[in-house]
Computed example of a mutant assay.
Amino acid sequence: MADFVSFPKRGLVCVSGPDAATLLDGLLTHNVAGAGPKACVYTAMLTPQGKFLFELFILAPEAGTYWIDVSDPASFAKRLSLYRLRSKVTIEDKSEANVVGAVWRAEALPTGTICYADPRHPDLPQRFIAPRVELPSEVEDAFAAYEQARLSLGVPNLAADLLVEKDFILEGLMDEMGGVDFHKGCYVGQEMTSRMKRRTTVKTKLCRVRFDGEAPAFETPILADGWEVGRMRTGGSGQGLALIRFDRAQKAISEGQELQAGDQTVRLDPPNWMQVPS
Rank of each mutant, 00 (worst) to 15 (best):
D3V: 06
V5T: 12
F7K: 13
K9C: 07
G11N: 14
L12P: 02
V13R: 11
C14K: 04
S16M: 00
A20R: 01
A20Q: 03
A20G: 02
A20D: 02
L23V: 05
L27D: 01
L27A: 01
L27M: 05
A33I: 00
G34D: 03
G36N: 07
G36L: 01
A39S: 12
C40T: 05
T43S: 06
M45C: 01
T47D: 07
K51G: 03
F54C: 00
F57I: 04
F57W: 04
I58V: 15
I58W: 02
I68H: 01
I68C: 03
V70Y: 08
D72K: 02
A74N: 12
S75K: 07
F76P: 02
F76N: 00
S81K: 14
Y83D: 07
L85N: 03
S87L: 00
S87T: 01
K88E: 11
E92D: 10
D93T: 02
K94F: 00
K94C: 06
E96D: 05
G101C: 08
V103F: 13
V103M: 13
W104H: 04
R105C: 14
A106H: 11
A106C: 13
L109S: 13
T111Y: 08
C115P: 06
R120E: 12
P122G: 07
Q126Y: 08
R127Y: 14
F128K: 07
I129A: 01
A130L: 09
E138G: 11
V139E: 14
V139L: 12
D141K: 15
F143S: 08
A144S: 13
A145W: 05
Y146I: 05
Q148A: 15
Q148M: 15
A149G: 08
S152V: 10
S152P: 02
G154T: 05
L158C: 11
D161I: 04
L163W: 04
V164Q: 04
V164E: 04
E165N: 10
K166E: 15
F168L: 14
E171S: 14
G172C: 14
G172E: 09
G172A: 12
L173Y: 04
M177Y: 03
G179F: 01
G179I: 01
D181H: 07
D181V: 03
H183C: 04
K184R: 12
Y187T: 10
Y187A: 11
Q190F: 06
Q190K: 12
E191N: 09
M192I: 15
S194D: 06
S194Y: 00
R195V: 09
M196D: 15
M196L: 15
T200D: 01
T204E: 10
L206T: 08
V209F: 06
R210W: 02
E219Q: 12
W227F: 11
V229F: 09
M232P: 08
G236H: 10
S237K: 13
Q239D: 14
G240H: 09
L243W: 02
I244N: 11
F246R: 07
R248V: 06
Q250G: 05
K251V: 10
K251H: 14
I253P: 04
S254L: 07
G256E: 06
E258C: 11
L259F: 14
Q260G: 01
A261I: 02
A261H: 12
D263Y: 02
D263S: 14
Q264V: 07
T265E: 15
P270S: 14
N272V: 01
P277G: 04
S278A: 14
S278Q: 15
S278D: 15
